[in-house]
Design a protein around this nucleic acid. Structure first.
Lengths: 212, 212
DNA sequence: ACAGATTTAAAACGATCGTTTTAAATGTCT
DNA sequence: AGACATTTAAAACGATCGTTTTAAATCTGT
């Protein structure tokens, strides 16, 4: 085990506890205890509990969104080269797959995506607005790409269906996250994750391509 | 305004505040103040904050689940009379439509369904388990009915897709609930609700019927 | 009118919370 | 070595929380 600095240990502890108990149910004392750090260290490094949540979200969400954005670009340019519209399934796969790939990571990021899934519709406006601001640009890009793939559908309907997709994905993430917590053996089998991901992509693609 | 008893006023106030701020972020003092009742009245009638949440959930969930169950039965018997398999869309409509019809009710139940949408994957095990126990029987019944409608699909896949449906529905409920809060005019137009409901049914039906 | 259920009033309980402060200790870089 | 950032330690701040208690008041049904 490599010695990590206090700031990283605080982020890791907060990530785990937020994902398990939620933001409101996790105290800074629980976080600092879990991180083997002093209580004052949390406010020293991050300023406030809310800012700590923001740091937890940004640390994973920035690279994840970058990855999703890159893969969307790949699909768009590949289609543009041949001169055809991008495929709906390829776009959806570009958006969903990086999210679930997170769960197989060695580090604690598999716990993180549970936070994502719940932040979307959190009753706490602090949590919700923090998350929405971080995702909005990518969301708009994804919407525009899907409009190219589905020119027969009105953009407003695609937007609505995007919300359905986010809901299905978020729920899927949270629920398997919950199932993971209940398991004694915390290792998720990659097979289950892969089939779950493909099932979700099939489901969402069919729903997205449904006639108007 | 008809004079309502304290117990009902407490349920109404808790329902509204839970839906707006979540369970953990709502204090009993805020609830009793909103209900124009004494702080002690909450514990007198319900025993604890957790039991109050249970009462809030049960009050709406029992009649709602009864309605969904009845409509599923109608679809099943109508199909059995003719001797054909039930239609997927009819079953999904039987499950989803009563939920969204709640929002058009005159009483405060339109605020309630936001709680439903979030309880499913709540980080708080108290909230989550309370909800899951109340929904599980209906959920199983719905699953069995869908297996009749989709005999070409393995039941396990249908079960997985049911979770996607719950996620899309829950997210849809929460998000339009959030949008309602932001609106000055709190009256939701029935047109928007109807088209949203139909969009969701189309989306979910297509996803549910997708080839394996 | 009486009994029992309901409601109010006010206060207090112990506990936990986010945050701040003060001090000393430890590390790091030039 | 000296300057500065980091970390620890311990304690306290004011605030809020769920819950309980005690007492009196009010309502309700018989």
């Amino acid at each position: 085990m490599i010695q990590t600095d206090t700031k990283t240990r605080l982020l890791d502890a907060a990530e785990m506890l937020f994902s398990r108990q939620g933001f409101a149910n996790t105290s800074l004392r629980a976080i600092t205890t879990e991180a083997r750090a002093n209580l004052a260290a949390a406010n020293y490094h991050f300023g406030s509990k809310e800012a700590l949540l923001g740091a937890v979200l940004k640390r994973r969400l920035h690279p994840l969104n970058q990855q999703r954005s890159d893969r969307i670009d790949q699909v768009l340019t590949a289609a543009a080269v041949i001169g055809i519209a991008p495929e709906t399934e390829a776009l959806i796969r570009a958006f969903i797959e990086p999210t679930f790939a997170f769960r197989r990571d060695k580090n604690g990021s598999n716990k993180f995506i549970s936070i994502i899934g719940r932040s979307m519709t959190s009753a706490d406006p602090v949590v919700r607005n923090l998350f929405l601001a971080l995702v909005k640009p990518l969301f708009n890009k994804f919407h525009q790409a899907l409009c190219l793939a589905l020119p027969q559908l009105p953009p407003q309907l695609i937007f609505t269906r995007l919300f359905f997709m986010m809901g299905a994905m978020g729920h899927c993430i949270c629920f398997s996250g919950i199932a993971q917590i209940f398991k004694e053996n915390s290792d998720a089998s990659p097979e289950d994750d892969d089939s779950m991901t493909n099932n979700l992509i099939n489901f969402v693609t069919a729903g997205m391509e449904a006639p108007c």
